[in-house]
Design a protein around this nucleic acid. Structure first.
Lengths: 143, 143
DNA sequence: ACTATATATTTGTATTATACAACTATGTAC
DNA sequence: GTACATAGTTGTATAATACAAATATATAGT
């Protein structure tokens, strides 16, 4: 078996594709917790970066405004967020997390965290730290 | 701003979710090359791990057999793979990549690779290598 | 050899996440 | 005040998926 030696970027490209596939499969079927992918990140964003409107969220996640509009409507309908009309602009409003929303987010975060921690149990602390760092760094460049 | 200090696994959990979101957005809209996510990985798998049937591919990717069945049918219809009936079993067959398929795969791989290389241009070689390594390692544990 | 069961694959149907386009309501500029 | 711009919603289409039903072939038990 003559394994071709890959340039790091080739490895990363392929492994990213594989990671996507796996992760997508997992989060589509056996979803961890009660929040789906979009709900989890929306709540996280609203919770940690303060309230914001549909447009800003759409930009943050690079999704269509209509998509975010539906997703936030769903969150609102479930009582996880509520809207505050923008006093300056009658068309706009901003979203804030409710107590229930914050609790849901926290418990989901915990469940996901534990799942990852379990997966990483055999990794050295250095590798865990480095992986976190590099992922963050990578996320900041793929705008 | 009192930033909470995160355990590495918490960072990784969150950054993975963000990565998914971004990557998904990118590969859904501005798709690189002519192959979609599933086609790219299917071709890669068939090309590098030899021919296999729908069932094996479904297991590999943890997707439903019906999903793979449609995806491979689409690949076949585009002339990227062809089927060989299994001589032992009249129900089964295996898939092999065609010349066109191999060419498509190679050019897509190249385009994706270049995109990643561009993104990583400011990273040190060590970080690139380490990131590739850790991604591979992580992929192997999220079965 | 016959019948029941298991297996590989396909096809039908529903769901979900998404984008784009059309629409509504409100704001801004000339 | 009229025209244009903007925030958000709703209608519609598409793609990827899962689950269930169907088809064809294989295997096991009698």
């Amino acid at each position: 078996m003559t394994e071709k030696i890959l340039h790091p970027a080739e490895t990363i490209e392929l492994e990213l594709a594989i990671l996507m596939r796996r992760f997508l499969a997992v989060t589509t079927t056996k979803k961890i917790g009660t929040l789906d992918r979009s709900a989890y990140l929306l709540l996280h964003q609203i919770s940690s970066n303060g309230s914001s409107g549909v447009k800003a969220l759409a930009e943050e996640f690079q999704l269509d405004i209509s998509t975010i509009s539906r997703q936030t409507a769903s969150l609102e309908q479930k009582g996880l967020v509520y809207r505050i009309p923008d006093p300056q602009d009658g068309r706009a409003y901003s979203l804030q997390i409710t107590e229930i929303g914050a609790a849901e987010l926290a418990s989901n975060k915990q469940a996901r965290y534990e799942r990852v921690r379990e997966l990483l149990q055999d990794w050295s602390t250095e590798d865990q730290q480095k992986f976190g760092e590099l992922l963050s760094k990578f996320n900041r460049i793929i705008v």
